[in-house]
Design a protein around this nucleic acid. Structure first.
Lengths: 337, 337
DNA sequence: ACTTGGCACTCAGGGCCCAGGAGTGCCAAG
DNA sequence: CTTGGCACTCCTGGGCCCTGAGTGCCAAGT
């Protein structure tokens, strides 16, 4: 249906359009890429490609630009993943090297990705559910309040304030802390809820009300996978030229945690780099945008996702390369700590 | 020099321009505001105001728009702070009510401010330096690494990974933890450095190397007021019409923590709501922007700053009202917890 | 000494037209 | 199937004119 040359033409159109942002015509094509056929031939191919829905012309007598479907074919069959240059690899390493805790890893990653791709970068905080409890700390804040700090083996620190039904004595706190750590240390967060459910038996009746309050906050923290936050960076890379309907709606979408979570969630395969192009995104404000995303996490597990968002007119091979590389490096960093 | 009517004219010009974003002419002025003089009179006043540098015309035969100096006079002498409506107050309360920890207070505050003012909101995390240590926790992460968690009485949790020079045993950790908490609990962070300096004496020679590593990280965390982060929200409220040179440079400035810190730092009085208009900002990308900012903190102390950033063409009275009100409410919340 | 109506002047913006040029589609020949 | 030729389309940018809002100035009025 589409012979090799037609595919080559499509590839050339995508590449040219990506780099110039102008509709590309038959003449321009033949001399910029060395296809050794005449413009007329290309025109025939183009008209077939248009018929099939891979390209369109903005108006009669203008060049062609790829459709979402055209980009789709391009990433699926016509382009690979462009590996990073040595310099870029070095940049990644030095950039991530100084990261001490999870927060700084995430913040650096998002900046790094944005710089590398010159797009908007999004990085999701590693999900709690697959990590395990390293330590639980209770700190009195006032008579009726405790600060609960939960530290995971992925180096994540969750903090919540617990409102107590009754005053609590220092030694009760100590005991509670001991029980919690004894029972929960090393447990996968996924199992915490069930373990906690059995805990009240171990406590005297007097201590139960306060303990239950603490327990329910723990379960909340763990179960509701609260705060699977997404961090965004590089918004200044957005260029109005690429979003006809204005940056406004894009910026809006980027500020909505919920929207971003949904967006990242939709994308299929966890491990591979996947691409969602334009209208493939269910999110309203991002119908002109593409998402290049992959999972990452300590070692090979995939705890969360990171990627870049840009105009459909995006340099996919490079973006995919950068996303893949960054995800790997971050995975390494997380595995070490 | 400027009689009452001229001031009234300036005020009217500012108000009209803020609401319409179009240069305002003499005729429009007289019938929108009920000045009972003729347009010609207004024209004379305007020409004086222009001579003095309070307004300009974009081109001959266009209306006038305020200069930065004009806005300055407006906020200093012609406008008060507009108190919030009852509905808005209620909105603030309900919005902030559900905030449990510092992170969520800050996040909610930034969203709240952005919604209330329809501008970009910036909220600085409360500075560490004025708060006191509530608790220090050490958690082994690997043989040569400790996770140090420092909890302050403002509910802030700082986490750092400590690289140890030698392996450390469980009981050393316990002892170190005890010493740290005994000596530092309740101390102002400002004093921590000096206290820590005297600690090594209390330890046996064998433990010193590891302990010193921990100490230096603590001092770093505390002294370098590391991570006085600024959170930004409401970027989608930026409208291209207001920034002739494009949103790009504004977005860039907003992503630079350092720049924002400097911006917030510059502004004078801690307690009052202060306004910096256009070119008064030293930051390059924000020469067309104004900043309305105030200090906030538990009770009356001022731990950090929050405010909004928008075009110089901003509704200052409303913005100032919102900023002041939000700062107060947040102060209350922080004081309670 | 201000204020006011009158009047001439200025200029940005919108509409219109035109020419140039890039690009297309079609066709007939190779 | 490819190619050169050719007529056609229509976007783009420049130039032109006109309109209208708005000004500055002046001379008369209070």
């Amino acid at each position: 249906m589409l012979d090799d040359r037609k595919l080559a033409v499509l590839r050339a159109i995508v590449e040219d359009f990506v780099s110039t942002n102008e509709p590309v015509g038959s003449k321009a094509l033949v001399d910029r890429h060395n296809l050794d056929v005449s413009p007329a031939t290309i025109r025939n191919d183009m008209s077939v490609l248009e018929e099939q829905g891979y390209i369109v012309q903005p108006h009669t007598s203008a060049g062609r630009i790829p459709t979402d479907q055209g980009y789709r074919l391009f990433v699926d069959r016509l382009s690979g993943v462009k590996p990073l240059s040595a310099a870029e690899r070095r940049a990644i390493e030095t950039f991530l090297a100084g990261a001490y805790d999870l927060d700084s890893v995430v913040m650096r990653t998002v900046r790094l990705l944005a710089q590398l791709t010159r797009q908007v970068a999004v990085v999701q905080y590693p999900s709690l559910t697959r990590s395990a409890v390293r330590h639980i700390e209770l700190v009195p804040v006032s008579e009726r309040r405790l600060l609960l700090v939960l530290i995971t083996d992925t180096g994540r620190v969750e903090q919540r304030v617990v409102e107590l039904p009754a005053e609590i004595r220092e030694d009760s706190i100590t005991q509670l802390r001991a029980v919690l750590n004894a029972c929960l240390d090393g447990r996968k967060l996924a199992d915490v809820a069930t373990v906690v459910a059995q805990l009240p038996e171990r406590l005297s009746a007097a201590e139960q009300p306060n303990a239950v309050a603490v327990f329910s906050v723990i379960v909340e923290t763990v179960v509701e996978r609260h705060e699977e936050r997404v961090v965004v960076g590089g918004a200044s890379n957005l260029t109005p030229a690429d979003f006809s309907r204005g940056l406004h709606e894009v910026l809006e979408a980027l500020e909505e945690q919920v929207v971003l979570m949904r967006l990242l969630g939709e994308s299929g395969d966890q491990a591979a780099v996947t691409v969602r192009i334009g209208s493939e995104n269910e999110v309203d404000g991002l119908r002109n945008a593409s998402l290049v995303v992959t999972g990452y996490g300590a070692g090979n597990q995939s705890l969360a996702r990171l990627g870049v968002i840009g105009p459909t007119r995006m340099d996919y091979p490079t973006a995919m390369g950068a996303v893949r590389a960054v995800a790997r490096y971050v995975g390494q960093i997380l595995a070490e700590s």
